[in-house]
Design a protein around this nucleic acid. Structure first.
Length: 965
RNA sequence: GCCUUGGUGGCGGAAUUGGUAGACGCGCUGGAUUCAAAAUCCAGUGUCUUCGGACGUGUGGGUUCGAUUCCCACCCAAGGUACCA
C-alpha cells in the first residue's frame, strides 16, 4: 500500500475538527504555553507559500509542547479591518463586510488544508462588533486615564480631578500638552464644566488635538507620507497641502522611557529592538531659552554681524520679554559657539517676530515650504535654504544679539521646532552659515574648522567659552546646565523623537469611536451600550463637504435618553448629539488581540480574571519584522497601559519573539531579441541584443527548461516567435526577487498540497533554511522531502499492510543508537527554533533505519512522535496503524537516553600541522600518552614523517591528534 | 552616513565549546529496471592535478599545535533609519 497523502490528510483534518483535538482549556493542572502567530489581514489574493512559514514554525512548536505535557493555547484570527476591502467597496459598491467575509472563507480553507493545530473555537475578527466592542472599551479606558510621572504610571482621571480641586495643577507632574496653563484650586473650582473638560483633555491618554496632516483636497482625504510622491498624491497626482485637522491622538510619548527600558526584559531579536530604540530616539541634552530682543533695537543691528557687536546702548535696551524661543540641544556645551538661531518655517513665533522689511521674503519662504512634504524636505540634504527674519535673540550668557533665521532643515515636529545654531560643531549649521555668510566662531581647542564642522564629542576640549574653557564635553555639559538653571534660562532635558500617535482615520472600514459631542466636547458612550456598530452608508467616499465617509450615514447621531443611534435629522444638541465621524486606525484592533484570545467569547469583560491569571502572557510570538515600529510598539504601549490600570499581570505581553524571514520568489526569464522575432535560450544570449522577459515559474521544470508550447499558449503574442534552443531545450535565466503577481513567480500552497500534500509542504518550508533568514522558494526541491515521506511510510510497511512480522523484534543496539541520536538532535533543534536541521536529521534517521531493516515497534513508535510536530497527518496515520486508538497529539515526547550513544572507540583523525592525513581507531578510554605512543609507532606516521622528528604532539582525547613537525 | 544581519560547491543550506569543511536535499553524471516515459533503486559529484598531492568558507592581516568559528582592517549584499538639533 503506497503513501496516499490525499486520503490521509483529509481523514485527519476531519478527525481533528470533529474531536476538537486542539481546543485549549482555561484551567488545567498542566503548565501553560501560549504560542502565537501574527494574525493576517485577509486579502483577496489568498495565501502564497511565503505566508505559512511562520504559522508552520509556531505550529511545530505548539505540537511539540503538547507532547511535552503543556496545555497549549494556539489561536488564529483575522485583522479584518483595512483599506483594500474599502477600496474595493469604493470601486464596486460591495460592502466591505461581504468582501471580508469571502476572503476569510478562502483563508480558512487554505489554512485548514495545511493541518494547523489551531483552536478555532477562539477565532477573533477585528471587524466583528463583538470584538471591537472591547477595542472601543480600551479607548474609553485611555480617555479616562492620565499619566502620573510621580508614580510613573497611568491612573484614573478622577485622581487628577481631586488634586485639581485641592491644590490646582502646580505640583502635578503629568504627561500633558505643552500649552497646559497653570491654575489654582480656586480657579479650577470656578471653571465652567466645558473649561474643566478642555483642561482634562490636555491630560487624557487619548485626546483631541489639532494636528498637521497631508490633506489632499481632490481625494478629500488625508494621505500617509508614502502615499505622496514629489508633493502630489500617488493615486491621481493631485496636489497635497499641509493642513491642521482635529484628530484623536494617543499619548504614547508618556511611555517612551518605559518602552525603551522594557526592551531589556524581553527576548526579541536585536535588529527589532534596535529599530524600536531608534524610533523612540532618546537624546539627552538641555532645553535652553533665548529671549527675543525688542524689534526696534533689532532694526539698528546689521544682519549677520551680531556676534561682533559691543554697543552697550543697544544691549542695555529693555528686551521684548513677550517672546521667548525655547530650543532643545544635545550640545549645551557649545552654547558659546552660537552665531544664529533657526526656526522651522511653521514655528508659531515666525509671524510675530518678523520685521516689516523681511515680511515679504519670510512669507514667501513659509508659503513655499508648506508645499513640500516633510519627507521631501528630509530627503533633500544638498540644498541649503532659509530667510532672515530681521529679529534677534539675546544670548543667555554673553547678552550678545543673535540673528534669527528660518530654514526648512529645521522640522516643526521634532524638539521645539527651533535650534541654536553652532556652525563650528554641527555640519548642517556650518553649511547654512557658509551659504549665508554668517560668523563661524571656533570654540574648540586645537581644531581646524576652515573646511568642516567638528562634531566628535570624545575629543572635544572647549575654548573661547568663558567659564567652560578647557573642559571636556562631559564636564562642560554638566557645568553649563547648572549655570543655565541658576540664571533660569534652561534645564537638563531628555528628548524623544517618538511622537504621539494619531489615532483618527478618515475611513469607513474601521472601528467607530464610542464618542459623541456635546457643545464640541467629546463624551464617551457607556460600556453597557457598546458596541457602537458601524453605520450603513450609501457611498464609501468622503462627503462633498470633505467629511469622513461616516458623514454619509443618515443614522449617525446619539440619543442620550434612549442610548441608541438615531437619525441625524433629530440632532437638537439637547438629547440628540452628533457622533464622531472618524474611525480608528489599523493598529487599534491588533494591540490587545493576544489577550482577547484568552477569553474571546466573554461579553462581560475583555477577558475574565481567571483567564488572564492562567495564561498570563504570550510565551512565543512569531511574525514579520515589518511590524517593528508599528504593531509591535503600539501593542507594547497598550499592554503597559493595561498593566498600569491593573487589567493584566505583565507589562510586556510577549516573552519571546521571532521574526520569520521572507520567502522570495525565483523568477524565470526568457530572452527576447530586440532586432528579430527570436527568443534565445539562456546559454545563447551572449552578444545578442536581448531583453529579459518574465516567464511564469509554473512553466519551468527543475532543470530550468521551459515548456515552450505552454508558454506560447500563455502569451499568445509569442505564437510566431522562434525559440532558439540549446541541446534541444530552452533554458530560462533565474533571478531571486520578491514574490509578486507581476513577476509571475508566485507559488500557491494549494497547488503544492494537491501535488505533494501538506506534510511535504510543511517539511519543505522548514527545510529551506533557518527560520529567521530570507530565502528563495524553488518548488523543484520539494521532491526531496516528498520522497523522504514515502521512505518513512515504507519503513512502517509491516504495520500498514497488516503482515505484522517482526513486530515483537527486540531493537538492536544500532536501532537504538539511531533513534536516540535523533531524539537528542530534534529536541535541541526545536528548542533552538532550528527546524531546518531537524528535517535533515529525520532523513538521516529514516535512511539508517531502512538500511538496518528495522521493524521494531520500540523504535517506530517514538519515531512517529518525533515526526508528528512537523508532518502531523502521516504521523497520526502511522500511529493508528501501530495500533493506537487515540490521537498522537498528546503522546509523550520520547525521552533521550545517553546510554545508547556511548561508544567504546573513536576513529581519530591524525593530522600533521593541522592537515588530516589518515585515521586510526583507538578505544575511548585510552589515555593521552598511550594514544601518542600508538600513533607515533604506526607505520603510516613513520611514512608521513620521512625520518623527521615531530616537535610536538597534541592529543585531544575523543577528538583529534595533531602532530607538529 | 549610521544601526543590524549576513557572505561556505551549480543551487538551498550543515558544521554543538576553536578540533575530520561541504551533513541533508535539489541539480548533474553513469548504471539497473522499463517497449518507452514517469516513479523507484545503485554508484559518483568542491576546484585544480604531473594522481604524489596542492588549493579551498567575501578580501588582507593577526592569535593558535589547529580558525567557517576568536581579534583587527576592508569589500559586498539585505533589512531598518536619517537635515533628529
Amino acid at each position: 500500500m503506497s503513501y496516499n497523502f490525499r486520503e490521509i490528510e483529509a481523514k485527519w483534518q476531519k478527525y481533528w475538527a470533529e474531536n476538537e483535538t486542539f481546543k485549549a482549556v482555561n484551567d488545567s493542572d498542566k503548565p501553560k504555553f501560549y504560542a502565537l502567530s501574527m494574525f493576517p489581514y485577509p486579502s483577496g489574493a489568498g495565501l502564497h507559500v511565503g505566508h505559512p512559514l511562520g504559522y508552520i514554525a509556531t505550529d511545530i512548536y505548539s505540537r511539540y509542547k503538547r507532547h511535552k505535557g503543556f496545555n497549549v493555547l494556539h489561536p488564529m484570527g483575522y485583522d479584518s479591518f483595512g483599506l483594500p476591502a474599502e477600496q474595493y467597496a469604493i470601486q464596486t459598491g460591495q460592502h466591505p463586510a461581504i468582501t471580508t467575509e469571502n476572503n476569510i472563507k478562502r483563508y480558512r480553507e487554505q489554512l485548514d488544508q495545511l493541518g494547523f493545530s489551531f483552536d478555532w473555537s477562539r477565532e477573533v475578527r477585528t471587524s466583528n462588533p463583538q470584538y471591537y466592542k472591547w477595542t472601543q472599551w480600551i479607548f474609553i479606558q485611555l480617555f479616562n486615564s492620565w499619566y502620573n510621572k510621580k508614580s510613573d504610571k497611568a491612573e484614573d482621571i478622577s485622581t487628577l480631578i481631586s488634586v485639581f480641586e485641592k491644590e490646582g495643577n502646580a505640583n502635578v507632574m503629568a504627561a500633558c500638552d505643552d500649552d497646559t496653563p497653570k491654575f489654582s484650586a480656586g480657579e479650577w473650582n470656578h471653571f465652567s464644566e466645558k473649561e474643566k473638560q478642555e483642561i482634562l483633555l490636555k491630560y487624557r491618554l487619548t485626546y483631541l488635538a489639532d494636528i498637521e496632516v497631508n490633506w489632499c483636497p481632490a481625494l478629500g482625504t488625508v494621505l500617509a507620507n508614502d502615499e505622496i510622491v514629489n508633493g502630489v498624491s500617488e493615486r491621481g497626482g493631485h496636489p497635497v497641502i499641509r493642513k491642521k485637522m482635529t484628530q484623536w491622538s494617543m499619548r504614547i510619548t508618556a511611555y517612551a522611557q518605559r518602552l525603551l527600558d522594557g526592551l531589556d526584559k524581553i527576548d526579541w531579536p536585536q535588529p527589532l529592538k534596535d529599530s524600536q530604540t531608534n524610533w523612540i530616539g532618546r537624546s539627552e541634552g538641555a532645553s535652553v531659552t533665548f529671549n527675543v530682543m525688542n524689534a526696534s533695537d533689532a532694526e539698528r543691528l546689521p544682519a549677520g554681524q551680531a556676534g561682533s557687536r559691543s554697543d552697550k546702548e543697544v544691549i542695555s535696551t529693555p528686551l521684548n520679554h513677550q517672546y521667548r524661543i525655547e530650543v532643545f540641544t544635545t550640545r549645551p556645551d557649545t552654547i558659546f559657539g552660537v552665531s544664529f538661531m533657526t526656526l522651522a518655517p511653521e514655528h508659531d513665533l515666525v509671524a510675530k517676530i518678523t520685521t516689516p522689511e523681511q515680511k515679504a521674503a519670510v512669507e514667501a519662504y513659509v508659503e513655499a515650504t508648506s508645499k513640500r512634504s516633510e519627507r521631501d524636505r528630509m530627503a533633500d540634504v544638498k540644498t541649503v535654504s532659509g530667510v532672515f527674519t530681521g529679529a534677534y535673540a539675546e544670548h543667555p550668557f554673553t547678552k550678545e544679539p543673535i540673528p534669527i533665521w528660518i530654514g526648512d532643515y529645521v522640522l516643526a515636529s521634532y524638539g521645539t521646532g527651533a535650534v541654536m545654531a553652532v556652525p563650528c560643531g554641527d555640519q548642517r549649521d556650518y553649511d547654512f552659515a557658509k551659504h549665508y555668510n554668517i560668523d563661524i566662531p571656533n570654540i574648540f581647542e586645537g581644531v581646524d574648522i576652515s573646511e568642516e564642522a567638528f562634531a566628535d564629542k570624545a575629543t572635544t576640549i572647549i575654548a573661547n567659552s568663558d567659564f567652560l574653557n578647557g573642559l571636556s564635553y562631559k564636564d562642560a555639559t554638566k557645568k553649563v546646565i547648572a549655570e543655565l538653571e541658576k540664571i533660569g534660562h534652561g534645564v537638563g532635558k531628555v528628548n524623544y523623537r517618538l511622537r504621539d500617535a494619531v489615532f483618527s482615520r478618515q475611513r469607513y472600514w474601521g472601528e467607530p469611536f464610542p464618542v459623541y459631542y456635546v457643545d464640541g466636547m467629546p463624551q464617551m458612550i457607556d460600556l453597557e451600550h457598546l458596541p457602537l456598530e458601524l453605520p450603513e452608508v450609501e457611498k464609501y467616499l468622503p462627503t462633498e463637504t470633505g467629511e469622513p465617509p461616516l458623514g454619509n450615514a443618515t443614522n449617525w447621531a446619539w440619543n442620550i435618553e434612549q442610548c441608541t443611534v438615531v437619525n441625524n435629522q433629530l440632532i437638537d444638541h439637547k438629547t440628540v448629539f452628533p457622533l464622531e465621524l472618524n474611525t480608528m486606525p489599523g493598529w487599534a484592533g491588533s494591540s490587545q488581540y493576544f489577550n482577547r484570545y484568552m477569553d474571546p467569547r466573554n461579553d462581560e469583560a475583555i477577558f475574565s480574571k481567571e483567564a488572564i491569571d492562567y495564561w498570563q502572557d504570550v510565551d512565543l510570538y512569531i511574525g514579520g519584522s515589518e511590524h517593528a515600529t508599528g504593531h509591535l510598539l503600539y501593542s507594547r504601549f497598550w499592554q503597559k497601559f493595561m498593566f498600569d490600570r491593573g487589567y493584566v499581570p505583565k507589562d510586556e505581553y510577549a516573552q519571546k519573539l521571532i521574526n520569520q524571514g521572507m520567502i522570495t520568489g525565483t523568477s524565470a526569464f526568457i530572452y527576447k531579441d530586440l532586432d528579430s522575432n527570436k527568443v534565445y535560450s539562456k546559454g545563447l544570449k551572449e552578444g545578442k541584443n536581448v531583453i529579459p522577459i518574465h516567464a511564469d515559474v509554473s512553466l519551468v521544470n527543475a532543470s530550468d527548461e521551459l515548456d515552450v508550447e505552454a508558454f506560447k499558449k500563455w502569451q499568445p503574442e509569442y505564437q510566431d516567435a522562434e525559440f532558439i534552443l540549446e541541446d534541444g531545450k530552452y533554458i530560462v535565466g533565474r533571478e531571486v526577487e520578491k514574490m509578486s503577481k507581476s513577476k509571475y513567480n508566485v507559488v500557491n500552497p494549494d497547488a503544492i498540497c494537491e501535488e505533494y500534500g501538506a506534510d511535504s509542504l510543511r517539511l519543505y518550508e522548514m527545510f529551506l533554511g533557518p527560520l529567521e533568514q530570507s530565502k528563495p522558494w524553488n518548488t523543484a526541491g520539494i521532491t526531496g522531502v516528498y520522497s523522504f515521506l514515502k521512505k518513512l511510510w515504507k519503513l512502517y510497511s509491516v504495520y500498514i499492510d497488516g503482515s505484522q512480522s517482526g513486530v515483537e523484534a527486540e531493537p538492536t543496539a544500532e536501532n537504538l543508537k539511531t533513534l536516540h541520536k535523533t531524539i537528542k538532535k530534534v529536541e535541541e533543534d526545536i528548542e533552538n527554533f532550528s527546524f531546518n536541521t531537524s528535517v535533515s536529521t529525520f532523513m538521516i534517521c529514516v535512511n539508517e533505519l531502512t538500511a538496518q531493516k528495522c521493524t521494531s515497534k520500540a523504535i517506530l513508535e517514538p519515531l512517529a512522535i518525533l515526526v508528528s510536530p512537523y508532518a502531523p497527518h502521516i504521523a497520526e496515520e502511522l500511529w493508528e496503524r501501530l495500533g493506537h486508538t487515540e490521537s498522537i497529539a498528546e503522546a509523550p515526547f520520547p525521552k533521550f537516553e545517553e546510554k545508547y550513544l556511548v561508544e567504546s572507540s573513536k576513529e581519530y583523525p591524525i593530522s600533521f600541522n593541522g592537515k588530516v592525513r589518515f585515521k586510526l581507531e583507538f578505544p575511548l578510554d585510552m589515555d593521552k600518552g598511550e594514544i601518542e605512543a600508538a600513533v607515533l609507532a604506526h607505520e603510516k606516521t613513520i611514512d608521513q614523517l620521512q625520518g623527521r622528528s615531530p616537535k610536538r604532539i597534541i592529543v585531544v582525547p575523543g577528538r583529534i591528534v595533531n602532530i607538529v613537525e
